[in-house]
């Protein structure tokens, strides 16, 4: 109960932040909120099941593209609703056909998915509509986008908390530990995975939809940038993908670090990115939060 109160108070505090900061700082907050939402949504499925998905940008880009296609014909809330529905439908389709894959095959498939979606959209635009590149002219301020993104963060973390306590969370953890054992204990593997995957993918689609009005111009090459998928994975892993606050703890410092690097070392930034990837996997395989726990266990044994 107290934890919930603290989380709600933090959310309320974050919601009034835009009143006190400059446009640039608000831009930073939006960037941070998007990555926290992406990493949390990603971890909602991948954290417990340990299915590493690189499809993040496939859904993220689809969300952005939906807004680009519909923003001139439908009112904004309907557009966002459509984006969510399209994301969910796509996740169901993809999930049904691929969640029987496991290990490296799943990783490769999800990576290919982003490319597939990009090429499909390109093909459609070239042969059917005959234009490539769409415009998003919406009268949304940075504050509006920030608040929507913050809401998505709250939903992603709230849903994760709820799932962790529910039978679904237990089932997902069992699947992550050993699929065969899980199946033998009576867990419906396909249904469980599909459900979590769809929730996660829908949230990711919504993040893309909410973020897109800031770009004004959208084309497949811009919205299906694979770096987004990699960053999401590395942020979630850094914090600890199987913990409620892990993705948040990983996303915020990494996001700030990348911003600092791009400001101060614009030419060498990709090298640092690669080193970070390696460091996270080697030094903190279970994430920062687990690392803290280890430290506490080692030095704080006297205290309960």
């Amino acid at each position: 109960m107290i934890r919930l109160a603290i989380a709600l108070a933090a959310l309320a505090a974050l919601a009034v932040v835009p009143m006190f900061v400059s446009e640039y700082e608000l831009g930073l907050m939006i960037g941070m909120a998007s990555y926290v939402a992406l990493a949390s949504a990603w971890a909602l499925f991948s954290g417990h099941t340990r299915y590493i998905s690189l499809a993040t940008v496939a859904f993220y880009g689809t969300g952005a593209y939906t807004v680009a296609v519909l923003n001139e014909t439908l009112p904004y809330p309907v557009v966002i609703l459509c984006a969510g529905l399209i994301g969910a439908a796509m996740a169901l389709l993809v999930g049904l056909s691929t969640l029987r894959l496991s290990g490296i095959y799943f990783v490769i498939f999800t990576f290919g998915l982003a490319e597939l979606v990009r090429q499909l959209i390109t093909w459609y635009e070239v042969t059917v509509t005959g234009t490539l590149g769409r415009y998003i002219f919406l009268d949304l301020t940075a504050r509006d986008i920030y608040w929507q993104m913050l809401a998505l963060v709250a939903i992603a973390i709230g849903l994760t908390a709820w799932i962790n306590r529910s039978r679904l969370g237990l089932a997902l953890r069992a699947i992550g530990d050993d699929e065969v054992v899980a199946a033998h204990s009576g867990i419906h593997l396909a249904r469980t995975k599909l459900f979590a995957f769809t929730i996660s993918a829908t949230l990711i689609t919504l993040v893309g939809a909410v973020a897109s009005p800031r770009w004004v111009y959208v084309e497949p090459l811009i919205v299906f940038n694979p770096t987004v998928s990699f960053l999401t994975v590395i942020m979630a892993l850094l914090g600890g993908a199987n913990r409620l606050w892990g993705p948040l703890v990983g996303a915020i410092p990494l996001f700030l670090l990348f911003e600092w690097l791009s400001v101060n070392f614009p030419d060498t930034y990709p090298i640092f990115l690669g080193l970070m990837f390696i460091a996270v996997v080697f030094v903190l395989p279970n994430g920062l939060l687990a690392g803290f726990d280890d430290l506490r266990a080692r030095f704080g044994r006297t205290r309960p």
Partner: peptide
């Protein structure tokens, strides 16, 4: 004062905000 936008519009938008307000 120069920044790298990493060919990403999200980073580009933020860099412009930084140039203008910070």
């Amino acid at each position: 004062i120069e920044y790298d936008d990493r060919s990403s519009n999200e980073d580009l938008v933020r860099a412009i905000e930084r140039l203008a307000t910070k």
